[in-house]
Amino acid sequence: MAINDYEADATELLETYDFLMKYIVIGEAGTGKSCLLHHFTHNSFKDHSQHTIGVEFSSRTVKLGEKRIKLQLWDTAGQERFRSVTRSYYRGAAGAILVYDITNRDSFTNLGRWLADARTLASPNLVVVLVGNKSDREDDREVEWAEASRWAAENDVHFLEASSLTGENVEAPFLMAARAILLAIESGTLDPEKAGSGVSYGDRALRRVNSSSRLSFGSLSGSARRRGGAVKLKVKSWIPGSKCC
C-alpha cells in the first residue's frame, strides 16, 4: 500500500499541469532542431541524428515558478521537400522555437522566410524564440551574437544561443516562450478557453479556477483580473539547466 501511495503521488506530480501549450520547432535542415528537442526531453545529446521526416511529436512538463506547464512539441523537418507538410502544423501553435545554426550563415539569412511563414500560418499571438544553436562550435562561427540579437529585436522575437551538444541554454528557449505566453494570457490577449489558441487550461488550473472565480488565475497572480488594475505575473526567473520531472 505504502509503495502504491507513493507512486500515485509521483504520478500526480508528473501528470497534472496548469497549462498545456503547443509549440513548433522550425528552421533550416541540419540546424539541430531535433537535437535541441531531444536534449530538452531526454536531457542528453542525440547521437547520429538523421533528417526528420515530416513531423515528430514529443511532450514534456516544465515548471515555471508555481506553474506546471505541459508542452506539446512538434519537431518539423527543415528540408524543403517537407515544407508543404510541415507548414500545416503551424496552425494553432502558441509558441515557435526558430532555430538557426551559428556556424551556417545561410541558415541565418533564411530566417526571414521562416518567420514570415510562421506569422502568417500560426495564430497572430504566436510567441517566437530565436535560437542560435551549436554555440559550442565557437571556432566555426559564421553569425555573430550581436547581429542575431539585432535581427531578433527588429523582428520582435526573443533570442538566445544554445548548444544541444553541451546542453547549454537548452531549456531556456522553451521556458522563455512559456513565460511570454503566460504573460499574454495574463494581459488578456490570449484566451486558453478558446480552441485553436494553442494553449489550454490543465486540470490543476481548472480545479483552482473552478474553486474561485472563472476569471481568476488562482495562485497565478493572486488577484482576480476583473478587480482591475495591471496584474503582474509572479513568475520566478528560472535557472537554465535546472531539471524538472
Binding site: R91, G92, L121, S123, P124, D191, A195, G196, S197
Partner: peptide, 12 residues
C-alpha cells in the same frame, strides 16, 4: 470548427 470557423476570432 477548425474546418469552417478557425481559431479564436478566426485565427488561425
Amino acid at each position: 470548427a477548425a474546418l469552417t470557423r478557425g481559431g479564436p476570432s478566426g485565427y488561425p
